[in-house]
Design a binder for these strands. Sequence first.
DNA 1: CTGGATCCTCAACGATACTG
DNA 2: CAGTATCGTTGAGGATCCAG
Lengths: 223, 223
Amino acid sequence: MTNQHYGQFCGLARAAEIVGQRWTLLILRDLAVSPRRYSDLVAGLPGIPTNTLASRLKDLEEAGVVRRAVTAGERSLIYELTPRGEELRPALDALGLWGAGGMRSPRDGEVVTTASIIAALRVAAGSGTVPSSWNTAFTVHVADVEVHVLMRDGTIEVGEGPAAAADLVITAGPQIRDILAGELDAQTAIETGAVQLEGDASLFERFAESLRVPYSPHVPADA
Amino acid sequence: MTNQHYGQFCGLARAAEIVGQRWTLLILRDLAVSPRRYSDLVAGLPGIPTNTLASRLKDLEEAGVVRRAVTAGERSLIYELTPRGEELRPALDALGLWGAGGMRSPRDGEVVTTASIIAALRVAAGSGTVPSSWNTAFTVHVADVEVHVLMRDGTIEVGEGPAAAADLVITAGPQIRDILAGELDAQTAIETGAVQLEGDASLFERFAESLRVPYSPHVPADA
DNA sequence: CTGGATCCTCAACGATACTG
DNA sequence: CAGTATCGTTGAGGATCCAG
């Protein structure tokens, strides 16, 4: 509510006042994946104090970035991005991409959340198209997170939960990041056991090649 | 030094740990415009506590985003972006663009800084090219800030200080933002006195059309 | 059970002064 | 010029409690 101001008539300063608060970027990442309830957010953001979350949501609502909505079928509130909030996607993607370029392996205690995996896979899928003849369903396990990747009609769709009928089930650890970054090629990943496959293993190449983020060459030492 | 962690193996979380601290984005914006000395940063960031600045610079250095360097000719330190820091530009631009879309007029006490104007004009110039036959020099005054815009060899260059031999001197207030956003067209700006021109006034059209940022349609109420 | 509000503690931030 | 030292204030973190 009492957002700090920088006193500059500057786009970046205005943006920083809104998204530069602690936890705010991660809240927006979760909402960018899909609208969520308060308790979904709490679950997806391990460690966030509930008062901080409540305060951020109120600030974001005031800023016109997030809105509360009552879902038709259910009787619970959801939070979702407004159109103005949707416009943040390019910035969120750019920041996430940059941050991912500085990652190597997880630090002590770092976990993988469903929203972070979906966000990463969606950025990796980008707007790139795949041959429209492809009709392939993947289920991807990373740590205890389960998501699906569907390639069909020339597009890639990434969502929560397993694929209804997966052609290939991929189980991997944090090294999935290296595969997306193109630093670990599909064949090596299989040989070293970085991924386990169940189903049509030949489809893994397709997965690795279609989901690829631009490589960041300048990676500093990482704790 | 004691940067807070989010405990997630996620690119956006890592980025937020580095650039999500108060003042950090503005420090990076200033350094993205050009390498600067400590005192330049203090001057360009009105209100920043000096200990906060010192702490941020140390953090950014540790993160591999900024480095201290001794300039050859002079005997003073400068801070500059590392290659890893340069990679932040797309994210800074995207955030700044988003923030600029939410601005209308300055709030009480908001000032315009040289770095913010240069950054805005450079983003507006983008990678867009101009006819290589153009060889035009503009000096732009906004509040007490003075910058130059040079169009030649098909490119646009924006820098600090006046142009050596300006074909047109443009004096404007914060409404320059509306011109860049395409919400105020050149002719109207002249007629309403939003800009004052000195020199070849016909070149103002060229300025307004070459420096244009994508319009953000979803602008909330602005204080 | 969801969706918060309250209270307390402490680390970070902010303002000012001061120093190599 | 380039910071550090000191100190007061604010916001984050953590636990608990409350209302619909």
